[in-house]
Design a binder for these strands. Structure first.
Length: 642
DNA sequence: GGGAGAGACGTTTTT
DNA sequence: CGTCTCTCCC
């Protein structure tokens, strides 16, 4: 299929796909077809014979990356097999792993996963004000990098922060690892410090989707890769929902100043949503007072009005039951399960919704992360596997040696590490010496005991025939706490094979931290509003529309202005949610939006999810409807009791 | 190094 | 309402 198939040459979509300008900015609201236009642009480049390896389509999530790939394959575009949509994160890791880059940065691109952070926190907590404070300081360190604060004038780090950073970096360097939040900044630094680096001109065409969700460091990386490239950025500030990741939505406006002569294109017709949904979406987002450039969506009459229902239930149980009933009903009426999207902002809602639908026989898939590695046993088995495949992995060794010890054996480990640093030995060798008695260090008995156990376990694994047997030993069949990870490991093994052990660990790590995205969707999907970005469905349900959850309450420590900004982002989140609804009247799919909330829920659940209830009575939290329900304007129906 | 008890505080989103 | 964290004590 040619790239222009079905596109009217008079349209902006055509221009986005065809413009020869080296700088293009597209700002366009939800459902206006901006990702579609970008895909056609990629198709055009490939069809014109441009080599796939010099095209860089950057997406924000892996879902979007795979989506791009799938569509190009579907169009039969030549060369699309070799074109990967990449997330900036994966691109950064790939570049940082190159030998000459490794030498230049002096940092091992080995990101720490969530559970590996624990011993780090314990190792630093005594000097830096306790665990909570260490986590806070670490967060601030990553935030500063994401915002490239050191490149901006007037922000001086205070002495406590500076001291923490020194210790943190020393820990990371000793353990030959990197925080996840350092990955992109490290690439940024490398590119900036090496203007002659081949990486700076590796790509000739860069296309960035969801630009408003990138933080300064990410935007900076794009800029550093752009000198020799044509760049097309696509985004929408009304859909900026990643401030927790330090997204810098102003960047999409600043970009136009920095790139004079760029094509500035916009799409305003909401081709996706039914008109009633467009009207309530416009009304809702109109309450955001800080919008720099309001861009109302144009409803398309041919889409029809669609169906909107707002339902209040008495309790969360009834809400869950009610939604499950509605979904079953829809399926009985002939709606395909994969045409139904159930969104909610917390797993406290997501989990029971999932259970209830499964119980009533609805094929359902939850996209809330399963936390495969939440159990100690699974963490330990996975750590042993990693250490078995690489004895030099200091992070995993530190984790294993401290696990199930009081305070992660921080006191003893400090002495081990000091010794290593003094004599230039590795932790493994040092512990082996301690074990054999050729070396003695005070307070290291606990560590040596753990080490012996670890060493013996690894030796037992050593005699096993192959990876399959090792996986079977570490994650035995029938063990509940390692069931999920066993499944993942066997799956990855099947895909990678016995030979490439590095790839095996890498892929397994990825599949653990990032739950797989099925390419073929057959089920009702339950997920967060964040994850739903980029998706659409004829039937969209948003559950748990209560004050405190959607919107979540802003942190009290924020300034009034920051609190207002937070509220606006929460509103954008809801805006993203309701604009998932897709109208296909000619296919008998009018487009249905269902918003639900309840009057009460168990106090424990409410508090543990961060809701500050309107009132507490006897273990029950009384809830208020989300303020956003009242902001949907005259086009919205009145709420009804469920 | 480890256990008992008091007190603080809470979540969610991604790579 | 629970869970995590810290302190105190052996």
């Amino acid at each position: 299929m040619p790239w222009f198939d079905g596109i009217d040459p008079a349209t902006t979509t055509f221009r986005i796909a065809s413009s020869a300008n080296a700088r293009i900015r597209v700002v366009a609201g939800p459902g206006t077809g901006k990702s579609f236009a970008m895909k056609r642009r990629v198709a055009r480049l490939l069809e014109s014979g441009i080599a796939p390896n010099i095209i860089l389509p950057v997406t924000f999530t892996r879902v979007a990356a795979e989506d791009l790939h799938r569509e190009l394959v579907g169009m039969g575009v030549p060369g699309c097999d070799l074109l990967e949509g990449v997330t900036l994160h994966s691109l950064a890791l790939r570049i940082l792993t190159r030998n000459h880059v490794l030498q230049a940065t002096g940092r091992a691109p080995r990101p720490l996963n969530e559970f590996e952070l624990e011993p780090l926190v314990c190792d630093l907590k005594d000097v830096h004000g306790g665990k909570k404070n260490v986590r806070k300081l670490k967060q601030a360190y990553e935030a500063a990098w994401a915002r490239l604060q050191h490149h901006q004038p007037g922000i001086a780090p205070n002495p406590a922060d500076a001291e923490f950073q020194t210790d943190l970096l020393a820990w990371l360097q000793f353990h030959e690892a990197m925080l996840i939040g350092e990955v992109i900044p490290q690439l940024h630094n490398y590119l900036q410090a090496n203007p002659a680096a081949a990486e700076r001109s590796e790509f000739r065409h860069i296309l960035v989707d969801e630009y408003q969700d990138l933080n300064r460091a990410e935007q900076g990386v794009i800029e550093l890769l752009s000198a020799a490239a044509d760049v097309c950025i696509v985004g929408d500030d009304d859909q900026s929902i990643y401030s927790f990741k330090h997204a810098h939505p102003d960047g999409i406006r600043e970009w136009l100043n920095a790139n004079q002569g760029a094509d500035d294109l916009g799409l305003d017709d909401c081709r996706r949503c039914p008109t009633q949904v467009v009207e309530i979406a416009n009304s809702l987002i109109g309450h955001n007072a800080m919008r720099p450039v309001p861009r109302p969506l144009n409803p398309i009459a041919a889409n029809g009005a669609g169906e909107v229902r707002i339902i209040q239930y008495e309790s969360i149980e009834e809400e869950v039951g009610g939604i499950s009933e509605i979904v079953s009903q829809k399926i009985n009426d002939g709606v395909q399960p994969n045409d139904i999207l159930v969104l909610t902002q917390s797993r406290v809602f997501g989990a029971p919704l999932y259970e209830a639908m499964v119980a009533s026989g609805v094929p359902t898939k939850s996209y809330f992360s399963e936390a495969e590695l939440n159990r100690d046993e699974a963490q330990r088995a996975f750590a042993l596997l990693k250490l078995f495949l690489n004895r030099q992995d200091r992070v995993v060794l530190r984790w294993l040696v401290g696990a199930n010890g009081h305070n992660w054996h921080a006191a003893g480990y400090r002495r081990v590490r000091e010794h290593c640093e003094n004599v230039g030995a590795s932790p493994w060798d040092t512990m082996a010496q301690l074990e054999s008695g050729t070396l003695e260090l005070p307070y290291t008995n606990g560590i040596v005991t753990s080490f012996t156990e670890i060493r013996e376990t690894l030796e037992e694994l050593e005699v096993l025939a192959d990876l399959a047997a090792i996986v079977d030993r570490l994650f035995p069949d029938g063990n509940d706490s390692t069931r999920d990870i066993r499944g993942l490991a066997l799956g990855v093994l099947e895909e990678i094979g016995e030979n490439d052990r590095d790839a095996f660990v890498r892929e397994l790590s990825i599949s653990i931290s990032q739950p797989e995205i099925p390419t073929e969707i057959e089920d009702v999907r339950v997920m967060s509003l964040h994850k739903s970005k980029g998706l659409s469905a004829p039937v969209t349900v948003i559950a748990g529309c209560v004050q405190g959850l959607l919107p979540r309450r802003p942190d009290k420590n924020l300034t009034p202005n920051e609190q207002a900004q937070y509220m606006e982002e929460q509103r954008r989140l809801f805006y993203v949610g309701i604009t998932r609804v897709k109208a296909e009247p000619q296919a008998g799919k009018p487009g249905t939006l269902i918003l639900t909330y309840s009057q009460e829920m168990p106090a424990g659940d409410a508090l543990s999810v961060g809701i500050t209830p309107a009132r507490l009575s006897y273990g029950t939290a009384l809830l208020h409807a989300s303020q956003f329900i009242g902001e949907l304007g005259p086009a919205a129906p009145n709420p009804i009791a469920g």
